[in-house]
C-alpha cells in the first residue's frame, strides 16, 4: 500500500510541475497584458518538435548520437526559438487587438492556435504521426519497492527553480519592475520612459520560454508528442491559472496542484475513474469559481464607480 501511495504522490507532483510551467505563462500574460493567449498551449508544444528536429540536425553534423550533450543543446535551442515564436505571434497578430474588446483577442488567439497546430503538422515531416520523444534522463532509483525515475525529480526541481527565478525577476530586477509598471498602467509607464512595446515583447518571450520548458517536459513524461497535444495542455494550464487567480504566480502553482491532484486521485481511487477524470477536474474548476469568483489567490477586482 505504501508504494502505491508514494507512486501516486510522485505522479501528482510531477504533473503539477508540468501544468504549473504552462499556467505561469498564462498568468504572466494575463496579469501584464490583460491578454488571454489561448494559443499558449500550442506555442509550448512547438518546443518538443524543435528539440527533435535539432537533435536530428546535430546528429547529422556534429554529434554521433542522441547523447545527453546533444539533448541539452537541443532543449536550450528550443526554449529560445519558442520564446521568439511567442514574440512573433504577438507582433503579427495579438498586438492588433490590444485596444479591441477582449472577445476579439480571444477568438483571434484561438484561430492562431489552430494555425500554429496546422503549421507544425505541415512543416514537420509526417507531422500527423505522433513522434516518440526521448526520456531526457534515463536513470532510475530504487527506493524500497518504488521505482523513482530521476527524470521526475528533475522536473519537480526545475519547476520550483523556475518559479523562484520568475519571482526574483519580477520583484528584484529592473526588468521585473518595468513589467509590473506596464501592468499597472500602460500610459503612465510610457511617461516614465518605459517602452510598452518592448516590455510586451519581453513578457511574451519569458512566458513562451517557460511554457516551452513545460512543453518539453510534457512530451518527455508522456514519451510521445503529437501536433495536437497543445490543446489539452493549454486548456488545463489555462484552467489551473484561472482557478489559482490570473495574474498571481502563486495562484498558478496552487491551481496546478489542485487540478493535478484531482486528476490523480480520481484515477487512483475510482473504479471507472479514468473516463471521468476530465469531468471531475472541470467540476472542480466550477466549484472553485463559484466560491471564489476571481480565483483562489486572485485579486478581487475593485471597480471604481
Amino acid at each position: 500500500m505504501d508504494a502505491f501511495v508514494m507512486q501516486n504522490l510522485m505522479n501528482w507532483l510531477v504533473l503539477s510541475s508540468i501544468y504549473a510551467l504552462v499556467a505561469l505563462g498564462f498568468s504572466l500574460l494575463f496579469g501584464v497584458l490583460n491578454v488571454i493567449h489561448f494559443s499558449h498551449g500550442d506555442v509550448s508544444i512547438v518546443a518538443p518538435f524543435v528539440v527533435l528536429a535539432t537533435v536530428q540536425a546535430l546528429i547529422a553534423t556534429a554529434f554521433p548520437a542522441a547523447t545527453p550533450g546533444a539533448l541539452v543543446l537541443a532543449c536550450a535551442a528550443a526554449i529560445v526559438v519558442v520564446g521568439l515564436i511567442g514574440v512573433l505571434a504577438d507582433w503579427l497578430v495579438i498586438r492588433r487587438f490590444r485596444n479591441a474588446p477582449a472577445m476579439m483577442a480571444l477568438v483571434a488567439t484561438v484561430a492562431l492556435g489552430t494555425v500554429i497546430r496546422e503549421l507544425i503538422r505541415m512543416i514537420y515531416p509526417q507531422g500527423s504521426n505522433p513522434k516518440p520523444f526521448p526520456n531526457l534522463i534515463e536513470t532510475r532509483l530504487m527506493i524500497g519497492d518504488l521505482t523513482v525515475p530521476v527524470f521526475s525529480l528533475f522536473v519537480i526541481a526545475v519547476s520550483v527553480l523556475m518559479m523562484i527565478v520568475l519571482y526574483v525577476v519580477m520583484r528584484h530586477t529592473p526588468l521585473g519592475m518595468r513589467i509590473r509598471a506596464v501592468a499597472e498602467d500602460r500610459n503612465i509607464a510610457r511617461l516614465m520612459a518605459i517602452s510598452p512595446s518592448r516590455i510586451y515583447a519581453a513578457t511574451f518571450f519569458i512566458a513562451s520560454a517557460v511554457g516551452a520548458i513545460g512543453g518539453i517536459f510534457y512530451a518527455s513524461y508522456a514519451g510521445v508528442v503529437r501536433f495536437d497535444f497543445g490543446i489539452q495542455l493549454g486548456l488545463i494550464g489555462f484552467s489551473a491559472a484561472v482557478i489559482g487567480g490570473l495574474g498571481s504566480m502563486q495562484g498558478a502553482i496552487l491551481g496546478s496542484l489542485l487540478i493535478a491532484g484531482i486528476d490523480t486521485l480520481v484515477q487512483a481511487t475510482m473504479a471507472e475513474g479514468a473516463s471521468y477524470r476530465l469531468v471531475f477536474a472541470f467540476l472542480l474548476v466550477i466549484f472553485v469559481l463559484v466560491l471564489k469568483p476571481s480565483g483562489i489567490l486572485g485579486r478581487t477586482v475593485m471597480e471604481k464607480v
Binding site: 500500500m1 502505491f4 501516486n8 504533473l15 513524461y221 497535444f229 489539452q232 484515477q267 479514468a274
Partner: peptide, 22 residues
C-alpha cells in the same frame, strides 16, 4: 480484474498502471 477507459489522447497512464500493479 479492472476496466479502465481513458479518452483518446491520454498521455499519462501512470495512475491507472499504479493501481493495476497494486
Amino acid at each position: 480484474d479492472s476496466t479502465d477507459l481513458l479518452p483518446v489522447g491520454t498521455t499519462d497512464f501512470r495512475a491507472v498502471l499504479t493501481k493495476i500493479k497494486d
